[in-house]
Structure formats: structure tokens, C-alpha cells
Amino acid sequence: MGHAAIIAGQGFNGVSLASILLLTALGLALSFGLMNVINMAHGEMLMVGGYLSFLATKMVHGPLAFPFALLLSFAGAALLGALLEVTVIRWLYGRPLDTLLATWGVSLILQQAARSLFGAIGVEVVAPHWLEGSVSIEHGLLAGLSMPYVRIFIILLTVAVLGLLMVFIARTRWGLYLRAVHQDREMAQALGVNTRWVDLVVFSMGTGVAGLAGAALALIAPVTPTVGQSYVVYAFLVVIVGGLGSLFGTTLAALLVGLFSAGVQMFTSISLADVWLLVLVILFIQFRPKGIIYQRSRAMKEA
């Protein structure tokens, strides 16, 4: 395998990692931008999505199994998110640090519940047969490069979700409400927007997308009770780099983090790549403390 193929291969891995990170971070960025809430149990939504897709492929067989698994993991994680919003997060508005701790408690409980239900050892989701195999390049500059269909599917899924979300925000009535509340909560409320409902819908949509990420991740790695934790810390870094409530910024940040991790891993171990990633983020906020893209505003915000 030539140098070009190795670099292209790592680039492909980076984009595929970025896709999962982006699916995870989208919900975080949306609800943080809108409600100033960080949901530490967000990683567990990923885990729930993974387990639901495992259950779905056990229940249903045939060609419809996998689409059903995707649907179920989205719906299940969205419902759980709605429940979380109504029972815990709603009561802690305006106290972001306390929300962070309370949702961490929720994440511990969900992890332990998963451990009791499914055991500490991971379960595997068998990918449908039309996702088996890979695209291999045998000639030319990139000879030896191999891209599994599953990873290509995950990237396409992410692009589709991103596109739908953009249409939702830019073209629908609820998207208009979302933008209004994001810009000026009080004003939106005064004009008759039910901000409670907007919060609830956006939050559960975000956890639903994380559930999808879980279903996608289940195709390439076993689902374990702690699978969410290992991804969500990077998703937080993506949110920090991306800036508040901007789909474009979050996407760019996910690509940056994914490609950087994959790139550094060519030279050092995975664990050192973690350290360098953190150093990069701390250096990055020296130049752009509010992230890649942020709302310019003259309002004084006490965060």
C-alpha cells in the first residue's frame, strides 16, 4: 500500500469518525444553543439507540429489519429525551452547572440499568447483507485503499440527517420558532411562541439523532453500557470548537476533530492522540474563544 493510499485511508476513517461525532454533537449543540443546557446523559442516548437497534434486529428479520432498527432507535431515544426534559431538565433552567450534574446522575442510572439488562459485555448488531463488503481500489495511486460499505453508509446517513435538519430549521414553522427562541427567548414568548414546547421538541429531536448515531455505531462496534461515555467527551469538544447553535460550525468542528484524531494516530498511539486533541482545543480557544461560528451580539451575557 502506497503512502497516498494510507493517507486517504486515514482520511476516510477520520470522516467516518467525524460522522458519528457530528450525529452525537448535533443534539448537544442545538439544546445548548437554545436552552443553555448541557446534557451529560447525551452519550447514554447513543447507548440506548444501540441497544434498541440490537433488539429491533432480533425482533424483525428480512430486508426491513435495519430500517426498522433505525426508526426504533430514533423514536426510543427521542422519547427518553422528552421524558428527561420534562422530569429533570425543565426544573433546572438557568442553572447550567446544576443541570450538568443532575444529568450526569441520570447517565449513571442508565448505564447501570443497561448493565443489569444486557450484561457488561457488549452485544453485536449484524449489519444487513447489503452492507457487507467494501469498495476496494486496486489500481492507480490509491491502490490498496479499502472503504467498507458500512462506513460509507454511516457517512451518507449523517449527510441525510444534516440535510433534513437544515430543511427543518430553514423551511418549517417549527424551525422558525426555533430560530426565534434562539435569538431572543423573551421576545418570542411575547409574540406567542410556546417556548416550553419548542424546548421539548428540540431537545428530544437532539436525543433522537444521538439514538441514530448509536444505531449507526452498532454496525461497526459492539454496544456496551459505557459506549456513550467514550464518544460523548469528544462530542463535547466538538461543541466547544464549533460554537453555539450553528449547524455549520458544528459540522466543521466535527470534521476537524475527526480528521485531526485520525491524522495524529498515524504518528503516535491513540492515547497520545487524545492528549494532542485536548492541547489543540485549548490552543484553539486562545484564538476563537467562542468557537468557529458564533452569534455576534451586543447583549451582555452572564454565563
Binding site: I38, P96, L100, V233, I240, L278, V281, I285, A303
Partner: peptide, 14 residues
């Protein structure tokens, strides 16, 4: 750089 609040918490966790 006036980064604080939850950002700082998440950075320290990382």
C-alpha cells in the same frame, strides 16, 4: 480568554 461556565467544566473533563 473569557471561556468559562460549562465550557470550562467540559474541558476539565476532557
Amino acid at each position: 480568554r473569557r471561556v468559562s461556565g460549562v465550557y470550562f467544566s467540559l474541558l476539565t473533563q476532557a
